[in-house]
Design a protein around this nucleic acid. Structure first.
Lengths: 226, 226
DNA sequence: CTGCGGTCTCGTACGCTGTAAGTTCCTCGT
DNA sequence: ACGAGGAACTTACAGCGTACGAGACCGCAG
């Protein structure tokens, strides 16, 4: 009786509706790229997919799991080095690729600190970093140390970079920094002086400088380690 | 009538109640150090301070602002270099101090990516990094590049480190990594081999290695830049 | 003594969140 | 024809940040 209240019992239900883990992850990535992690909510995501909130939970166990899937998806965009590249060009290429990922997906760099990166793509990336170094004759330990050092630099730099960009971009210096400069001019003159230096705001150049430093340092020590 | 319902109109109200911005920040730091940023909520924080949730908002405009205060508080624990230290020992000391802060306050390293670090203590730290380098004769640009490079490495490394520690600590390798090893043994042998290497799990040693690399690289290039 | 404006604390309420539990429907193999 | 199970939905709950407004308390002016 009640259930035949009118016509079809429920106007909206069980149609196929393209929901799938991949579709959800894809849409989630769009939201993340556009609005960042704070703004991602299961409910809004479901709405954008034309589904009810709880429908997502059939394909994904939890929100954190979904985020880990998204993080790993970004690792999947990593550019693997060519199989014949020598040690240094392989490393340089990988590190540029890493930075590129960070700039494309700021939420990703910010998030790698809060989640474990042990998805298949993350592991594949890590593995691929070893290949050229071992091929060049480094010991496992030396390769691990080198990789850890270089990618630590790149990740740290990328975090600072996306932070700086999201604060105001390339308008060297961004508007809100002007007030800060006034605030601290007397107490911390070096800092304020630095804010005024034009050349410093070349993020590209700074990255290259740092990468060169790190690679040089490693080259020098890696000989000792063989 | 109503207001004199019994005895004193309200059993709990307007007493002094040690609430203050400093007290709130102090307690918030305790919670953060113990449980991380995800677990910090204004309501629970208020409860721990014996106050009503909204009482905090007299002293602090918003939760994000409170977090920024806490972040800056950590910058305040930074060890300034001795005024007579030479370039290299000053930098080494500062970078060890930075790493120490990160290990003591994991939520802090994870959070610096999501908030602006322009509080007084953060600026003071940044400023103090320039001092020994300028004193050694570096140009502003060279000093900025060097500082950016070194501290990028330290922050990136520290993030990896707190991640690794929170995943299972020093039990080289942590338990859940055993399963991962099995999962990926065939597809990514280098990665799995790395997990098995004992010596890699010396985080202290890896940090020192990386720091040496970066400093060496900088020393070599800084001559060119003067 | 009365009134008043500042400082601080609190109660209520709104809109939002992640998700546990249970329900309904569709499709398919038998 | 019918049961099984995959997929989507509904309802509900506990928790969150915080806007708004109502007091409570204090010291000071009249």
């Amino acid at each position: 009786m009640d259930s035949v209240w009118f016509g079809k019992p429920r106007p909206s239900s069980g149609q196929p509706l393209g929901l799938s883990r991949e579709a959800i992850v894809r849409k989630a990535m769009e939201v993340l790229d556009e609005h960042g992690m704070q703004k991602l909510s299961m409910r809004k995501l479901a709405a954008e997919l034309g589904a009810a909130p709880m429908s997502l939970y059939w394909h994904v166990p939890t929100k954190d799991a979904l985020i880990e899937l998204c993080l790993d998806e970004v690792y999947g965009e990593f550019d693997l080095p060519g199989p014949d590249d020598d040690w240094e060009t392989a490393v340089r290429g990988m590190m540029h690729s890493l930075r590129h990922l960070a700039l494309k997906h700021p939420w990703w760099v910010r998030g790698i600190g809060e989640f474990n990166s042990i998805g298949p793509n993350a592991v594949a990336m890590a593995d691929s970093m070893f290949e050229p170094m071992l091929r060049a004759g480094l010991s496992m330990a030396a390769a691990a140390q080198s990789i850890s050092t270089i990618s630590s630099f790149v990740v740290g730099y990328a975090i600072a970079e996306v932070n700086f960009i999201s604060r105001g971009g390339m308008d060297s210096p961004p508007p809100d920094l002007a007030k800060i400069a006034d605030l601290y001019r007397e107490k911390h003159p070096h800092y304020v002086a630095m804010l005024g230096e034009q050349e410093i705001w070349s993020l590209e150049g700074q990255f290259e400088f740092g990468l060169n430093c790190v690679i040089d340092g490693i080259k020098a020590r890696v000989v000792a380690l063989r």
